[in-house]
Structures are given as structure tokens and as C-alpha cells.
């Protein structure tokens, strides 16, 4: 049952995130060049990393669904991608705020990291209409898994290809040869990264629990209808949902 431990997990998430933001605002030194506005780095970069890892994890779950034909993996894949798209929106928004403060423009087209993230984001936005366009449940799950695998393989490739068209205003804090981040910043960053990752896991679990519950509710409702109760009322089957169905079979 994916609902187990959700309470503790939420508390842990809140604590780590609070600790992370405490470090960001009261402990970590100001950036020498960027000053206060650099602090959005501790939110923006973890969001982006977690979103991209979530997309790739969605691909792995899609692969496992095809291997095992187990509906739960399809549900995982769907929820991973769904929450990662939400994190992707947050990444784009925080990134645009930072870009406006730092470079003077909300969006810079010749910057590979921005463009490649946007492409990945747009690709995953088409996941929803794609799922919606397939009627048969089994086929929908299978095709969505194929999409998740293809797109998951595409994520690293896209970053590589776009980075070849190099230009370097976007900071590459981890890859630079002259040392990158000082220790205090790295520590704060890691705390924030763990916090955001925990937030992602919490949201995924919550979403899965919601899906499970609504699956059970509709199963119970159908059982009641079969007994002859409430037949006259229109039931909850109006409109199809694209989210995978988690009813126990």
C-alpha cells in the first residue's frame, strides 16, 4: 500500500526543506558577483535535476511495465512523469525569474541549457494528449510505456546535442575545472536537493494513493450498482480519465 508512511515522509520533507531554506537565507555566504539573487539557485537547480531524473525514472518504470505487464508500473510511470512535469513548470518559472534578475531577459534563446530543458518539457507535455487519444486501456498503458522509454532515452541525448551548439552564459557550477562551488554552498545545495527530492517522492506517493482510493471507490460503486442500489442516478463513469486505473483485479 503506497499510503503507508506518508505522514512521516511529509514531516521529513518539510523539515529538510525548512532546514535547507534556513541555511540558504541565514548561513550560506552571499555570492560575490550575483549577491542575493543567486540564492534562487538553491531552488531552481534541485527542481531541474529532480524533474529530469523523474522523467528518466518514468522511462525505467515504463520499461518494467513492458517487461512484467504489471499495471502498477504503468501507474508509477504516469505519476512520475506527471509530477516531473509540474516540477518542470516550477523550474521554468524560477529559471525565468533568475534570468530576468541576472541577465536582464526572461528568456535567452542561444543558451543551450534553457533550450534543451524547454524541448524536454514540451515533449513530456505531449504525453497527456497522447494517452488521451488511445481508447483501449491495455493498449494505452503499453503505448504510454513505449513513449516513456523513448522520451527517457531522449533526455540525455537532447542535452548533449543542444550543448554542442555551445554558448556559455548559463553557469556550469559542477563541471568547471577551477573547483566549482565552495564547501558551504555545496553543502547547502545538497540539503536543498535532498529536500526537493523528498518533496517529489511525497507528491508521487500522495498521487498514487489518490489514484488507488478513487479506483477502490469506483469499484465499490460498481459493486453497489450490481446489487441494484442507485441505478437511476448517473454514475461516475462519465468521461474517460487518462490516468491509469489502479483497481484491484
Amino acid at each position: 500500500m503506497s499510503g503507508r508512511g506518508l505522514g512521516q515522509l511529509s514531516i521529513a520533507t518539510a523539515l529538510v526543506l525548512l532546514a535547507g531554506f534556513g541555511l540558504v537565507f541565514f548561513w550560506v555566504p552571499m555570492d560575490a558577483i550575483e549577491g542575493f539573487r543567486q540564492k534562487i539557485f538553491y531552488l531552481h537547480v534541485p527542481l531541474a535535476i529532480v524533474a529530469l531524473c523523474g522523467f528518466m525514472a518514468g522511462g525505467v518504470e515504463g520499461f518494467r511495465h513492458l517487461r512484467s505487464n504489471d499495471r502498477r508500473h504503468d501507474a508509477n510511470s504516469y505519476v512520475f512523469i506527471h509530477i516531473s512535469v509540474v516540477f518542470g513548470v516550477a523550474t521554468l518559472i524560477t529559471g525565468m525569474i533568475w534570468a530576468k534578475a541576472s541577465w536582464g531577459h526572461y528568456w535567452v534563446w542561444d543558451e543551450p541549457t534553457l533550450v534543451s530543458f524547454l524541448i524536454v518539457f514540451l515533449l513530456y507535455c505531449t504525453y497527456y494528449p497522447f494517452r488521451y487519444a488511445i481508447e483501449d486501456r491495455d493498449r494505452q498503458a503499453r503505448y504510454a510505456s513505449v513513449f516513456a522509454i523513448t522520451a527517457g532515452a531522449f533526455v540525455p541525448l537532447n542535452f548533449m546535442a543542444v550543448r554542442m551548439a555551445e554558448s556559455l552564459i548559463h553557469p556550469r557550477v559542477f563541471a568547471t575545472s577551477q573547483g566549482g562551488l565552495p564547501g558551504s554552498m555545496l553543502f547547502t545545495f545538497l540539503v536543498c536537493l535532498v529536500g526537493v527530492a523528498l518533496l517529489w517522492v511525497t507528491l508521487v506517493k500522495l498521487e498514487l494513493l489518490g489514484k488507488q482510493t478513487s479506483g477502490q471507490v469506483s469499484k465499490l460503486r460498481r459493486a453497489l450498482e450490481a446489487e441494484g442500489f442507485g441505478k437511476s442516478e448517473p454514475t461516475g463513469t462519465v468521461g474517460r480519465r487518462i490516468a491509469p486505473n489502479l483497481e484491484a483485479r
Partner: peptide, 15 residues
């Protein structure tokens, strides 16, 4: 769906 799915996927190819 074909253009919708294909266009983002071929961006690296086009680049």
C-alpha cells in the same frame, strides 16, 4: 499526434 510527438523528438537531429 505525429507532428506533436515527432517535432520535439527531432529537435536534436535538426540542430
Amino acid at each position: 499526434l505525429v507532428p506533436l510527438l515527432l517535432l520535439p523528438l527531432v529537435v536534436p537531429l535538426m540542430i
